[in-house]
């Protein structure tokens, strides 16, 4: 980067219409040199370190916002979880009492169980997305239109997805209910049944999530090397073996992304629960994020400390996955993958 235009320390500083160097007395020359030196030094400190500093300067706004909106609130949550506070009155320090109560709270275990269910069943979106992506990865007329139809559920808002499925399951007029009634003689109101309700909501959540994984895999499939496939063909690989040994290894980055977004999506599941059941019937479809909202911010809540305690637990669970992902990314980078 150091071009000719930049002044190094050796280059004399032009000083207007001064006479040529030889005529200048020694004294003046010395004085001028020292002046030039300080000036160049000041300018070069910045110039010399510019490249090193620039990234940090550009990082400052991002880091600042990340600190204010993410890192500091995390520690505030830890801090707040030690208080009994309704958000208006005086905070009262109660130490670990919130956690004690939490571990003795049936609603917490229901939420935790549902979160595990979400995590496990949501993973179905990854293979399903892969299947649809492979199915759609062909060259026929209007394939773009088909692709966008499959992608459609991811584009619409989660709130709309929740409403559509709530009507789908609705007793007396919902399509699913009527279908069951027609097939078996008696309909099941999924969202009113404490044992089925979480599965019903997860199914609704899978609809857009599969579309998301599908799009990740579709872009991944574009990058698959056709020569390798050809080579595999020559070696008589086909069907599942082709998929498993030739295609999938090349889709590793897509798989990684799909797993990450699905895990995070499962842990943040909130909108669908809120829209479809409001945590009901009698709290059987709650997940941790919804329970936290209910306790801290909903109409009947305002237990900030208790909500913060739930947030801390949810954070710790997420931390397990997040550290795993980060460790894997760092590891991949080190191995140059």
């Amino acid at each position: 980067m150091r071009g000719a235009g930049m002044s190094g320390p050796a280059r004399p500083v032009p000083l207007g219409n001064e006479p040529p160097e030889g005529i200048v007395s020694e004294q003046r020359r010395a004085a001028r040199m020292s002046l030039a030196n300080t000036e160049t030094q000041r300018r070069t400190w910045w110039r010399e370190n510019q490249q090193r500093l620039t990234p940090y300067i550009f990082l400052i706004p991002g880091v600042l916002f990340f600190l204010v909106y993410v890192i500091i609130p995390i520690f505030e949550s830890f801090w707040l979880s030690g208080f009994d506070w309704d958000g208006l009155g005086e905070k009262q320090w109660i130490g670990f009492a919130n956690y004690q109560e939490l571990f003795d709270d049936d609603a917490f275990y229901t939420s935790l169980k549902n979160n595990v269910l979400w995590l496990v069943l949501y993973m179905f979106a990854v293979p399903a997305g892969l299947g649809i992506a492979i199915f759609l990865n062909q060259k026929v007329r209007l394939i773009r239109a088909y692709k966008s139809l499959f992608f459609f559920p991811f584009v619409i808002s989660q709130v709309v997805v929740g409403l559509i499925f709530a009507w789908f399951y609705a007793p007396n007029f919902g399509l699913f209910y009527l279908l069951l009634e027609w097939a078996t003689g008696s309909g099941i109101a999924v969202l009113a049944d404490p044992d089925l309700v979480t599965y019903g909501i997860i199914a609704a959540g899978l609809w857009p999530q599969i579309a998301y994984c599908m799009i990740l895999y579709l872009t991944g499939l574009n990058a698959v090397d056709p020569e390798q496939i050809e080579a595999a063909r020559l070696d008589a690989a086909k069907g599942f073996k082709m998929l498993w040994y030739v295609i999938l290894p090349q889709l590793r980055p897509a798989t990684f992304m799909a797993v990450v977004v699905t895990v995070i999506g499962a842990l943040r599941s909130f909108d669908l629960v809120s829209i479809m059941t409001d945590g009901g019937p009698f709290g059987s479809s709650r997940v941790l994020s919804f329970y936290m909202y209910e306790q801290a911010l909903s109409e009947y809540g305002y237990r900030m400390g208790y909500g913060a305690a739930i947030a801390v637990i949810l954070f710790l669970i997420m931390m397990v996955f997040i550290s795993g992902f980060i460790w894997k990314m760092v590891d991949d980078e080190r191995r140059g993958l």
């Binding site: 404490p194 009901g280 019937p281 009698f282 109409e299 009947y300 809540g301 305002y302 237990r303």
Partner: peptide, 23 residues
């Protein structure tokens, strides 16, 4: 009920009433 009882009690109570009518 949700105005006579404190908000927290109201919430837990109403869930209980709903559950009673189902189970």
């Amino acid at each position: 009920f949700d105005r006579d009882a404190p908000a927290e009690m109201a919430k837990i109570g109403m869930e209980g009433f709903q559950q009673f009518m189902v189970q």
